[in-house]
């Protein structure tokens, strides 16, 4: 959260208009609610170097309303209890704004919908550049989610995790990981041990949960991030495994 309460903010942009646009969007106010002071006019640089952006100071006039949105809005949002299936709340629309903003700055046209659930916020994104946004092995999507979580933490304070999904990628990936876990568990039963590829913490959890009730195996995460992976061990009763080895030796 912001350390001190203040009623003015600075914004920059290629032009004064752009800076103003950013200000209105970020603060969620109308032009009539603010007073603008131009701190610096933009200056053209040479070959994209040395240029100076326009800098404006935005003073909030409608104190209460805007401050509430930025700092005190969480309480009001929490008052509207989210449904089990997830609903739109003040916080979820705040997160929707952050994601839309990031995508817009990436020049990606997409539809964004955020919902607040009991233990998390879920943001679904649909658009043309889904593959780009997901990235190799979901890398870009992970990065987006990491950053959105950090940005959101400053605007809302429910402490709930934000899960960003693009075109149902996470849901499909979950199904694929579960299948892979089952296959590898069978392999572990045959060979005594098997290993899954490196995964994120959330993905490893899918494996652990999927194999919790799988007879005869135990799972363990080993290695350091980002190479941390799940290893599956065949869990034989120690005694029987020892005696079996002894039997083999005796033969």
């Amino acid at each position: 959260m912001r350390e001190e309460k203040r009623d003015w903010y600075e914004f920059t942009g290629k032009s004064v208009e752009e800076a103003l646009g950013k200000a209105l969007e970020e603060l969620g106010v109308e032009e009539s609610q603010i007073e603008i002071e131009i701190l610096e006019e933009p200056q053209k640089g040479f070959l994209g170097l040395g240029g100076k952006e326009a800098r404006i100071k935005v003073i909030l006039l409608a104190e209460g309303a805007v401050r509430e949105k930025l700092e005190g809005g969480e309480a009001a949002a929490r008052a509207q209890a989210p449904e089990e299936t997830g609903g739109e709340t003040k916080d979820s629309s705040e997160i929707e704004t952050i994601v839309s903003r990031v995508l817009k700055l990436m020049d990606i046209e997409a539809r964004v919908e955020a919902k607040e659930k009991a233990d998390s916020f879920v943001v679904d994104v649909w658009g043309e550049d889904a593959a780009l946004l997901i990235g190799k092995g979901g890398n870009t999507l992970e990065a987006l989610q990491t950053l959105v979580n950090l940005c959101a933490r400053r605007k809302i304070s429910t402490g709930k995790k934000v899960i960003v999904d693009v075109e149902g990628y996470r849901k499909r990936r979950k199904a694929r990981i579960e299948k892979q876990a089952q296959d590898k568990a069978k392999e572990a039963l045959e060979k005594g041990k098997s290993e899954l590829p490196a995964m994120t913490a959330a993905e490893r959890k899918i494996v652990h949960v999927a194999l919790r009730d799988f007879e005869g195996v135990r799972t363990e995460s080993v290695g350091d991030e980002p190479e941390r992976r799940v290893v599956i061990y065949a869990e034989k009763n120690k005694k029987t495994s020892v005696s079996r080895e002894t039997e083999t030796e005796n033969q």
Binding site: D129, L132, L133, A143, T146, L147
Partner: peptide, 20 residues
């Protein structure tokens, strides 16, 4: 921690650059 945020910034910026 461990450059996690810097890495995320790089990944996202790289994706945006790829588009261009």
């Amino acid at each position: 921690k461990g450059g996690r945020i810097a890495q995320a910034l790089r990944t996202l910026i790289k994706a945006a650059a790829t588009k261009r």
